[in-house]
Design a protein around this nucleic acid. Structure first.
Length: 894
DNA sequence: GAGCACTGC
């Protein structure tokens, strides 16, 4: 480290002729930075949507009333027309989808099964499908040739004219229509079903399984409802709808505390609210505060949520309860979507959005109350918000803060906020009996399957939720269960197995919400997604092996690793709680009570201590917080992580040698990306390739979830992937993927054909759009340099010069700065190329130290883009083998 | 020659 510092000091003094001029340029940069910030602020103010503006807003009001009137008058005329059009579009789209599906189905079928192994019926079916596809294609061709509109709505026909088109629905009304059969088939292939529907439940199979697991009940997670009275299930959806909204509000556990709560908020500046899920605090508390007059003087009440879906759905619910239109008085704001207006007084948002808002409004002046909900989840953003918000509260005594959390952490939050009072609200939950194994289980996947069957055979009906660590485990577990149930045959009741994990297509995810058929049982195999993000009703049994995958960042090596680790007690209890949402439940833990007590940590290590803080540090710097080492964190991140982040920002030129933010840094802070990527985007201005860099940045941020690789079609998927490989590296391959997709007008079909995940691409498109907006914001024009791509790689180097490795003997790479041995990831297009110098996007440790997303660079570029960081001597080559002509020492003479 | 838990801006 000392040598690095020396180098830097040397370079910075050599780049400036005199110390005086260095000081001058620093001051000039600071001035430019502030001017830039002011321009941004001005632009923001101009752009804000003004629905009602007291000063010059008459035009806006007129406009709005006109629009409202128009809307009202024309609605009757427009709506039927719109309905018709949307129906037509839907039919068209569905036809395309179905043909694509059919085609894929035939391909799969032929790939998987040889003609010779098929039965007669299967052969006929294949033939039938092919014929169907041919007809569909012919039809399409004919249509294009003739340019005839085949779909005509009946009323368009003149009298006497015969309709050549029959509504598809007419066929579908018939029982067992082709369409229905087909859909049923599709559905069945996506869901495994075992067991017999009509198996008798009363029959007794005491010792059905030879390898039963012994569980012992250790304790009960207390519910707030009486066991005896809670036997009846909660109100059904229908019954609840019958209650008026007001009655529902009154029935919530938080209601009796309304007046006390308002009084407490009035009396104290900071209040910790401790309440279980289901207490109604998220929806009700903000409404109480509105009623109590906290939104007078045009101030807002803000409420943060850790997840987008939560922010949206809660806002919608509250808007309904208050009888206003979503987006007016009650609104929400999340990335890619701002549904608020000047009239908004109650604003739900994600914690990251509020974090961003700090940049344009560091004192939260437009809020009178800020509620940080689900604080116990300790996301990176909430953790940083704590520090910021605590600071603001000191110089804005009229700002009220509510921190809402689950039970365990309330005391800790209270201590952090200078012993703020805790307000407790009872929850609404049923008791859950907890069972532990007598002895540790060696193979927990097997143990899971056994437990599922054990429950299925011996326990009353009710769905089972199993927590596993990843897609792989879920798939094997699914197979094992399938196998074992098949062997048991019709002796047991029907068992429906449904997998859930984040990367699963959303229509498959939706299956967990389908009601379980009578006399059957649903088993949901889920990752941690079911711990907080997805709430599934009717779960009675939870099986918890006690593991989860966790990402860890090692700041010394700059490497991330994703590892299976034991969960914390807090997490274990959260999982158990999932069994008691609609009725009393049972939780089976596949570890011993002793292990729970002695081997599990109390709480999961908060995110802020586990991840790279580059962007967070830049943002805090942009907020004018200079002394980060002493920033008031609830749990401070490791010292080395902060130092690494600061060092990197300095090397990138975002901080000057006083540790102050430069103009470059201020512009980088505008981007919601890692500082290196921010620098890359800004460098694209110089290299005239902003279009390409924005695309690459967007593709890199959807993080390796682009290529889809189904187990049964690995070869097809890999060939498809190789077609995109670019000789100079993965960034350019990603660029090709995106551009080709864009050329097909963002087609789903194209994604399917090329084994690319449509969802990821759509996300990349969203991110790209946002980045383009931000580029304009920081005053960079969008230009393209294609087909030339050297500048693309140079711009990437300008941001990622920290991430460079050089080939050494034996075909492995050494990073320049840490001299660490690393490898190119086997998925990379350069895996077999082994160029002399490579730049990587990230380092991950899985089975080895891998560089993911790699491009080839030339060492002289490093001197061009980061002369302050690299010295020519460092970049000299010592190896001479496998060196192409013109590379190596020769290029260093420049 | 390997493998991607989950969020969020």
């Amino acid at each position: 480290m000392s040598s690095k510092n020396r180098k830097r000091t040397a370079s910075s003094s050599s780049s400036a002729e005199e110390p005086d001029s260095e000081e001058e340029s620093r001051l000039k940069d600071l001035q430019e930075r502030d001017e830039f910030a002011n321009r941004l602020k001005q632009r923001d103010e101009d752009r804000t949507r003004k629905v009602v503006d007291s000063t010059g807003g008459r035009k806006a009001i007129e406009e709005a009333t006109k629009r409202l009137k128009l809307e009202h008058e024309d609605r009757d005329k427009i709506v039927p027309h719109l309905r018709l059009q949307s129906r037509r579009q839907y039919l068209e789209k569905r036809k395309d989808d179905k043909v694509a599906e059919l085609e894929a189905d035939i391909l799969d079928d032929e790939y998987l099964f040889d003609e010779s192994v098929l039965t007669k019926r299967e052969k006929e079916e294949r033939q039938y499908k092919k014929q169907l596809l041919n007809i569909a294609k012919e039809h399409e061709k004919a249509r294009e040739l003739e340019r005839v509109q085949r779909y005509r709505m009946p009323q368009d026909l003149k009298k006497g004219e015969r309709s050549e088109y029959v509504e598809v629905d007419d066929f579908e009304k018939q029982p067992n229509s082709e369409q229905k059969k087909w859909e049923a088939e599709q559905l069945a292939s996506a869901r495994f079903q075992f067991g017999a529907k009509d198996a008798k439940a009363e029959e007794e199979y005491e010792l059905l399984l030879d390898d039963q697991i012994d569980f012992i009940q250790a304790l009960t997670l207390d519910g707030s409802r009486e066991k005896s009275t809670s036997r009846q299930p909660e109100l059904t959806e229908k019954e609840r709808k019958r209650l008026t909204l007001e009655e529902t509000k009154r029935s919530l556990p938080v209601y009796p505390f309304k007046d006390d709560l308002i009084a407490a908020v009035k009396e104290h500046q900071v209040l910790i609210i401790e309440g279980e899920t289901g207490s109604g605090k998220t929806t009700q508390v903000p409404q109480y505060l509105v009623e109590a007059g906290f939104t007078k003087d045009k101030k807002m009440i803000g409420c943060t949520q850790p997840r987008r879906v939560a922010a949206m759905s809660v806002a919608a619910r509250v808007a309904e309860e208050m009888g206003v239109k979503l987006g007016n008085e009650v609104g929400y704001s999340i990335r890619f979507e701002d549904c608020t207006s000047d009239r908004t007084i109650l604003k739900y948002m994600t914690d990251g959005t509020l974090h961003r808002e700090f940049l344009s409004e560091p004192d939260l002046a437009s809020y009178s109350v800020m509620i940080i909900d689900e604080a116990h989840e300790r996301t990176l953003h909430t953790d940083i918000l704590f520090g910021l918000v605590k600071d603001i509260a000191r110089f804005r005594p009229e700002l009220k803060l509510l921190i809402s959390s689950a039970t365990l952490d309330a005391d800790k939050f209270s201590a952090f906020f200078d012993d703020a009072p805790i307000f407790r609200i009872p929850g609404r939950r049923y008791p859950v009996d907890i069972f532990y194994t007598k002895a540790p289980e060696a193979d927990y996947i097997d143990a899971c399957c056994v437990s599922v069957l054990q429950i299925h055979a011996t326990q009353p009906l009710g769905d089972i939720l199993v927590f596993l660590t990843g897609q792989d485990e879920i798939e094997t577990c699914q197979e094992v269960l399938q196998d074992r149930v098949k062997r048991l045959g019709s002796k047991i009741r029907e068992l429906i197995v449904i997998p859930v994990y984040a990367n699963l297509p959303s229509d498959m995810q939706a299956k967990i919400f389908e009601p379980t058929p009578p006399n059957a049982r649903k088993v949901i195999l889920a990752t941690n997604i079911a711990e907080t993000s997805l709430t599934i009703d009717n779960i009675i049994y939870v099986i918890d092996p006690g593991f989860a995958k966790q990402n860890n960042f090692n700041s010394r090596t700059g490497m991330e690793s994703l590892m299976v680790v034991p969960i914390s007690k807090a997490s274990a209890n959260q999982r158990a709680g999932r069994a008691g949402r609609t009725a009393p439940g049972k939780c089976f833990r596949l570890y011993t009570a002793w292990a729970y007590k002695h081997e599990l940590e109390d709480n999961t290590v908060p995110e802020i201590q586990r991840i790279n803080l580059g962007n967070a540090v830049l943002m805090l710097k942009a907020l004018g917080i200079n002394d980060l080492i002493h920033f008031d964190f609830l749990d401070p991140p490791p010292h080395e992580t902060l130092v690494l982040a600061l060092e990197q920002l300095y090397a990138l030129g975002a901080l000057n040698h006083h540790g102050e933010l430069t103009k470059l840094g201020r512009r980088m802070a505008e981007f919601p990306v890692d500082p290196m990527m921010g620098k890359m985007l800004l460098a694209s201005e110089k290299y005239k390739c902003s279009e390409e860099m924005v695309t690459i940045a967007a593709m890199l941020s959807v993080n390796s979830a682009i290529f889809y690789r189904p187990k049964d079609k690995i070869i097809h998927a890999d060939t498809a992937r190789k077609n995109f490989n670019h000789m100079h590296g993965d960034h350019l391959s990603l660029l090709q993927v995106y551009n080709q997709w864009a050329e097909t007008d963002y087609s789903t079909q194209w994604c399917y054909e090329n084994f690319i995940q449509y969802r990821s691409m759509k996300r990349a498109r969203d991110v790209r759009e946002q980045l383009v907006g931000l580029m304009q914001r920081v005053e960079i024009d969008m230009v393209s340099c294609l087909p030339e791509t050297i500048n693309v790689r140079k711009a990437a180097t300008a941001g990622y010069f920290y991430h460079v490795a050089r080939l050494s003997k034996g075909g492995h790479y050494k990073t320049i700065k840490h001299n660490q041995t690393v490898m190119i990831h086997p998925n990379s297009s350069l895996f077999e190329e082994l160029p002399r110098w490579v730049l990587y996007h990230e380092l991950v440790f899985t089975s080895k130290e891998y560089m993911r997303q790699v491009i080839e660079i030339e060492s002289k570029w490093l001197l061009e883009v980061a002369p302050h960081y690299y010295k020519a001597k460092e970049l000299e080559d010592s190896t001479n083998k496998k060196m192409p002509k013109g590379a190596g020492r020769a290029e260093m003479t420049q």
